[in-house]
Amino acid sequence: MRHYSILEYASFRWFKAAIALVATASAAYLWHEPPLKPYGGTWLGYTLGTVGAILIVWLMAYGIRKRRYASTVGTVQGWLSGHVYLGTALIVVVTLHTGFELGWNVHTLAYVLMLLTVVSGMYGVFVYLRVPGAMTSNLGEDTLDAIVLRVGDLDREMREKAMSLPDTLFALVDKSVHGSRLGGSLQRIVSGADPKCPTAAAIREWPQHAKRLTGDAAKLDKQVFGLLLQKNQLLERARRDLRYKAILDMWLYFHVPLAFMLLAALVVHVVSVFIYW
């Protein structure tokens, strides 16, 4: 079955709606004859501003809707599709609302926050179009939980076998068993790597300690080293998975607080404008 992205939802229904909104706003702007020059305080300015404010509130309501699993007000897919397209159209509506009048004030602050929020959202769309594919090719049929369990199994097996290996090698294995980490800090989660990973270190140092072994010990050493390699590969895949998930999450840490900042600035903008009407 072909996968339909949210961008194509309902044969581009929201794309068409956004185009219609942008076209209407632009046409009105071109046709309008303001008393001095275009700005937010003409009747068209008030209209565009009202449309923009309602849009912002609606766009933020997506955050509520997507948590209401029982809701039947549209589908979450549809809401997201509209969120993406109308959010993009918001740039045009609000820019026309400003009449290109910008300055060092709370009004332009709201405008800039709106731009930042939308741009971070666009990055989010980009990420959601790209990253899931990479995640699938990284994990395949596996899940992170399964990988973690397998690492645990490897640890047990490896340690048991390494008991019969010389202390230096056993120490490497033991460090790998005790010290290997997944995530734990922002830097490690986002980079998808752990430069101090004891498993990778064990693999690096193994040959120089193992080359003098002979007989049964040499055989055992090969087995343990193989297990270490397997473990390291699993860890790398798991770390990539954490990184991908973090990328899918990370932009929201900008998008959501920016949106709330925008909401606050928007309220201040509207109230202050009417205090000094």
Binding site: L144, V148, L149, V151, G152, D155, R156, R159, E160, V177, H178, S180, R181, L182, G183, G184, S185, L186, I189, L242, K245, A246, D249, M250, Y253
Partner: peptide, 16 residues
């Protein structure tokens, strides 16, 4: 051997 799974808890941005 310490159980690996029991140590893997801080893997998402929320969990840190």
């Amino acid at each position: 051997a310490p159980d690996f799974a029991s140590r893997v808890s801080r893997t998402t941005l929320r969990s840190i």
